[in-house]
Design a binder for these strands. Structure first.
Lengths: 122, 122
DNA sequence: GAGAGTGTTTGATCCAACTCGAACACTCGC
DNA sequence: GCGAGTGTTCGAGTTGGATCAAACACTCTC
């Protein structure tokens, strides 16, 4: 009988790079994020420091591991997932690295002024 | 010897109504509220519902007990204290009641747009 | 002063989130 | 393929905040 590899062949036609890792990388449209989710995501100081550090760099130039955070890499990975689920950042895989982009315009369109307050935090 | 009552007599000269209850009612200047404190206060759905309900009424017309909340009065009292400490509302005692005012301008001056997002929540 | 009404404080429980080490998965260069 | 580098997932521990009932404090009216 045919196994799953054939199915993978069919999916390879898709334009997007469809490695298993990338396929598990699900994003949330900021337009569909509830205020509760946004506030929960922004209420954590580690997550806000990620956003601030990311805001001073070009898009997709900072990998998750390059941030200076006071937590373990397991915890950091969790925080990146929360930010992604809250529509605050977009991630793409490049080799073994996962590069990040701050979703400024999209998130600001959904919650005007909110991200600016976070980035202005001293 | 003289007891505390004499001290109270002296404090009665103060213009503000200085009952013991009012004296324990401490407020926080919104200008001195850290972003962390504001987000923590706004991250709770019960507290946001208090703010929304308060926004549709004239200042100092709603007592704490008149809000329709899904929690006990002890919990509600806690939430009002958190909002007061976050610079989000001002309270005055009138008889046995404690009347509330939403600190719109002051809080918006400190965190532009943040309160508007909460009040616009469906 | 007694009682009703309003609100706070206390003490305790519960739970969701933060946290970590260890194990696992993936990608690349040798 | 092997090893190093990057990141996620799993399982478990910890903690802070939300919650409640009960007791307390205050104000008014009778």
């Amino acid at each position: 009988m045919y196994d799953g590899d054939l199915t993978c062949q069919a999916e390879d036609v898709i334009a997007e790079p469809a490695t298993r890792r990338t396929r598990n990388l699900v994003h949330t449209d900021p337009a569909e994020v509830p205020l509760q989710g946004a506030l929960d995501a922004l209420a954590d100081p580690v997550r806000r420091s990620i956003l601030r550090e990311l805001s001073s760099e070009p898009d997709f130039t900072r990998a998750c591991g390059t941030f200076t955070l006071p937590v373990s890499k397991a915890t950091a990975s969790h925080h990146f997932a929360v930010l992604r689920a809250a529509g605050l950042l977009e991630q793409v895989d490049k080799g073994p690295r996962r590069l990040n982009r701050l979703r400024r315009e999209e998130f600001d369109a959904r919650f005007p002024g909110l991200l600016a307050l976070v980035l202005a935090e001293s």
